[in-house]
Design a protein around this nucleic acid. Structure first.
Lengths: 124, 124
DNA sequence: CCGTATCCTGGTTGATACTG
DNA sequence: CAGTATCAACCAGGATACGG
């Protein structure tokens, strides 16, 4: 299995390449959130992801922006207002995340962590 | 989004739960290999994943075994012979990995890293 | 309100070496 | 051949503080 390089980084296979872009603890939850509500301010996003740290949300959003998954719109007002939206590229990841989510729920059921009990209502 | 606990560890959502089981650099490549060739010795697996370290392959296989994705069969011979196979649970992850792989290849194409050029022939 | 910089900690991984 | 132990290096991520 030949390796390949992108931006000076070596990857071993397409799975690793995909995970480099949407992996990590927060990228998929962020993108998923933006699919549910397509325009979100930084502070709203933060509210929906209560465990994420300020720094993490900030850096993850920059990486998602740099890789073309979200757009960042700054309104020149005081206090600042910044909105995030999925790009077309960002929208194309959603089905992948949906697949992983479904599989996660399947695993939860197998472990007797019934998602229908834990997530009482379909996530907003 | 309510949290939940499994084995003393807190998870925030189904995506994180799924990634805990099949995420990381190596778990999916290992499982993928085992789908292509359903019975593999430790050393064969190692050969197919040239960059993985001995320790990593070992620990990842133990975790996959502990979580019920692979079975480990030890033949009491000298020198030792150990074979790994996908369980039924392991087989059920394959479509998820396939989805991620396909998406990875899509991303590669978008970045002008054409997988059809890099992976000259369909992976064995 | 939003973003960045700095510092610091602990988990993850690789190298190496040793065992049955 | 397969697995474990030890140690060191690295890096993700948190806390905090400051700036626009």
């Amino acid at each position: 299995m030949p390796d390949f390089t992108d931006n000076g980084r070596v990857f071993y296979n397409p799975v690793e390449y995909a995970m480099h872009h949407i992996g990590g603890t927060w990228k998929m939850p962020i993108l998923w959130r933006l699919e549910k509500k397509t325009v979100l301010r930084y502070s709203e996003l933060k509210k929906y992801l209560p465990h994420i740290s300020h720094k993490m949300l900030s850096t993850q959003l920059r990486e998602l922006e740099a890789n073309g998954f979200v757009t960042r719109t700054v309104y020149p007002v005081v206090p600042p207002k910044v909105e995030y939206t999925l790009t077309e590229k960002g929208k194309r990841v959603i089905p992948v995340i949906a697949t992983i989510r479904l599989y996660g729920m399947e695993l939860m059921r197998e472990a007797n962590l019934d998602p229908e009990i834990i997530f009482k209502k379909p996530e907003p």
